[in-house]
Simulated scan of single mutants.
Amino acid sequence: MSTDYQQARESLGARLRELRLMRPGGKLTGPQLAGLLGWPHSKIYKLEGGKQTASREDLRAWTAAIGQPDAFDELAARLAGFETQIRSWRRQLSSGHRPVQERCNAEIDRTTIIHAWEESVVPGMIQNADYARHVFARYATLHDSPRDIEEAVRARAQRQEWLFRAGHRFHVLIWEAALRSLICPPSVLASQLDRLAGIIGMDTCELGIVPFTAPVKIVPANGFWILDDRLVMTEDWHAELWLDDASNIALYTKIWKTLRESAAYGADAHSIINAARSTLSSRG
């Protein structure tokens, strides 16, 4: 968890404690407040100590129980402020993968130029349906989330219409590992590699592949997307980060440009894809 995120969570917890102690009718102890809310008293101390992130429902219940409902808007704004940047998968996927895909689609729809890097998976913008289906299934299992896989696949396919709009540019870099990772059956990966080969030469998509044998100036890790010059989207196992400050956008842009120095394009990229494809012919 990032230091900024944790500091913000601790600050919210300190404010919750302050409100509890400044209750108009007299301060409440943690166990007393827990009793009013029907919560285990440990939850009070976890929230106040920044060990657990409050939900909007928690904040509404808290402010009602201490007789200060007007404080809800302030607390909700604090929560929204740090959850805008760090969006836990547990919360995002509580309603399934389709809503997450639709929120991403909305951001991409208002974007003209995308710079993307993926080190271990084919980017969603150029996935075919069968490949996407297996990716969603793996993550649904990992996070024990609702398995709205077909709805998520359709939402992701809808995003790909962006590639066929005049004036758009998708500059994407992929590490060779993504061409060989069997997140799906070999036959599905073979079809996906054929799709990649067909994308080379599109006027809206510039595909570069960083081969295993290329010298690299930075560790090829941590996939991310830069939308115009306004937003970076990157993922970790526990959360997705949306970063809109100038310093982080500049950092990720520098990383993308550094990785690009090691990438192969055109016929050379075709050769890397064909080499990966040929290894699948005997696997079925």
Rank of each mutant, 00 (worst) to 15 (best):
V135P: 00
G208D: 00
E240R: 11
G67K: 10
S181M: 15
H97V: 09
A152L: 08
Y265G: 00
L173P: 01
D58Y: 04
P211K: 06
S247I: 10
H171Y: 11
A77Y: 05
L259R: 08
L75W: 07
D194C: 06
S187P: 03
S94R: 13
A8F: 08
A140T: 04
T53F: 07
G25R: 13
T253K: 15
P220Y: 06
S271W: 08
Q127A: 03
A197I: 06
L93F: 07
K254P: 03
V188Q: 04
N128A: 08
G266P: 00
L47F: 07
D4N: 13
L251M: 12
D229F: 05
L243P: 00
I226W: 05
G223N: 04
I249E: 02
W162P: 00
I114T: 03
S42D: 04
A246K: 14
A157F: 09
W242M: 10
D194M: 12
W242G: 05
R56H: 14
W89E: 01
A157E: 11
T141W: 15
A140S: 09
R98H: 06
Q158E: 14
R147K: 15
L59M: 05
Q127L: 04
L79N: 00
A14F: 05
S262G: 01
S181T: 13
E74L: 14
S11Y: 14
S187G: 10
A263D: 00
L47S: 01
Q101N: 01
E261N: 08
V232K: 02
R154Y: 10
R138W: 14
D268N: 10
H270M: 15
I272C: 06
E151H: 11
A264R: 10
A64G: 05
E48S: 01
I183A: 15
P24K: 10
A178I: 06
T279A: 14
P211Q: 03
Y252E: 00
D194Y: 12
A80P: 01
F164W: 09
T279L: 15
S120R: 13
Q92C: 09
A116S: 06
L33W: 02
G81Y: 07
E240V: 11
D228T: 02
I86D: 15
R15A: 06
Q7W: 09
M1Y: 11
E107P: 07
V210C: 02
I108Y: 11
E176F: 04
D268T: 02
S271K: 11
D244N: 08
A177R: 13
N222S: 12
A214H: 03
I66L: 09
A155P: 00
V188L: 10
D148T: 05
A61E: 02
F224I: 03
A34Y: 04
W256H: 06
